[in-house]
Amino acid sequence: MKRRRVDKFRIVTFVQRRLVNPVVRALLERGVGVPGYALLETVGRRTGQARRTPVGDGLEGSTFWIVSEHGRRSAYVRNIEANPRVRVRVRGRWRSGTAHLLPDDDPRERQRLLSRRLAARINAASVRRLGTDLLTVRIDLDD
């Protein structure tokens, strides 16, 4: 059973890193709105360089929510653990904030609460389907 989970992680990660994320990231960086997506910028834990990753649009007031598909195995989550200061480009605007990992939060319930728009529901469904270890991340955005 564990072997199958590792294979799923590797396949999903490959498709995201090599095919989906580069296209979505390029569109978002150029200011093209991609429904249901935002761009998360973390500081690389080893390089110290900015790392940008497309994530679901989880903006709720002054809080930004993310449900990580692969939990602490996600590179951006490991970057957050090393340095919780992040930026999010959401709806065409960069916003800074501090990220917090919430291992005790129910990520499926969090997605249900955030899935009011169709694009958010589609993103949440793909995260649940493709994810191997869901983890909630809360970003408290600066004013």
Score class of each variant (00 low, 15 high):
residue 1 M to C: 09
residue 2 K to W: 14
residue 3 R to N: 11
residue 7 D to L: 15
residue 7 D to V: 14
residue 11 I to R: 13
residue 12 V to E: 15
residue 15 V to S: 14
residue 16 Q to A: 09
residue 16 Q to T: 06
residue 17 R to M: 12
residue 17 R to V: 04
residue 17 R to I: 07
residue 17 R to T: 12
residue 18 R to D: 01
residue 21 N to L: 01
residue 21 N to Y: 12
residue 22 P to G: 05
residue 23 V to W: 02
residue 23 V to R: 05
residue 24 V to C: 09
residue 28 L to N: 07
residue 28 L to Q: 05
residue 29 E to T: 14
residue 29 E to Y: 04
residue 30 R to Y: 02
residue 31 G to F: 04
residue 32 V to C: 04
residue 33 G to H: 10
residue 35 P to K: 07
residue 35 P to G: 11
residue 36 G to A: 10
residue 36 G to W: 03
residue 37 Y to L: 15
residue 40 L to H: 08
residue 40 L to D: 03
residue 41 E to D: 06
residue 42 T to I: 09
residue 42 T to P: 07
residue 44 G to K: 12
residue 47 T to C: 13
residue 48 G to S: 15
residue 48 G to R: 12
residue 50 A to P: 15
residue 52 R to W: 04
residue 53 T to R: 00
residue 55 V to K: 11
residue 57 D to E: 14
residue 58 G to M: 08
residue 59 L to Y: 08
residue 59 L to I: 05
residue 59 L to T: 09
residue 60 E to D: 15
residue 61 G to F: 06
residue 64 F to G: 11
residue 67 V to L: 06
residue 67 V to R: 08
residue 67 V to E: 04
residue 68 S to M: 06
residue 70 H to T: 04
residue 71 G to R: 09
residue 71 G to Y: 05
residue 72 R to Y: 03
residue 72 R to G: 06
residue 74 S to I: 10
residue 75 A to C: 09
residue 75 A to N: 08
residue 75 A to I: 15
residue 77 V to G: 04
residue 77 V to T: 10
residue 78 R to M: 05
residue 79 N to R: 06
residue 82 A to M: 02
residue 83 N to T: 05
residue 85 R to A: 07
residue 85 R to W: 02
residue 86 V to D: 04
residue 87 R to V: 00
residue 87 R to W: 00
residue 89 R to T: 02
residue 90 V to A: 03
residue 92 G to S: 05
residue 92 G to C: 05
residue 93 R to Y: 00
residue 94 W to G: 00
residue 95 R to F: 01
residue 95 R to A: 04
residue 95 R to Q: 06
residue 97 G to M: 00
residue 99 A to M: 01
residue 100 H to I: 00
residue 101 L to S: 05
residue 101 L to V: 02
residue 102 L to G: 02
residue 103 P to H: 01
residue 104 D to G: 03
residue 104 D to R: 06
residue 104 D to N: 09
residue 107 P to K: 05
residue 107 P to M: 02
residue 108 R to Q: 06
residue 110 R to Y: 12
residue 112 R to C: 07
residue 114 L to D: 14
residue 116 R to S: 13
residue 117 R to G: 09
residue 118 L to D: 04
residue 118 L to Y: 08
residue 119 A to R: 09
residue 120 A to M: 11
residue 125 A to T: 13
residue 126 S to V: 13
residue 128 R to E: 13
residue 128 R to V: 15
residue 129 R to S: 14
residue 129 R to M: 15
residue 129 R to T: 13
residue 131 G to R: 03
residue 135 L to K: 01
residue 136 T to D: 08
residue 138 R to W: 03
residue 138 R to H: 03
residue 139 I to T: 04
residue 140 D to C: 00
residue 141 L to W: 00
residue 142 D to E: 10
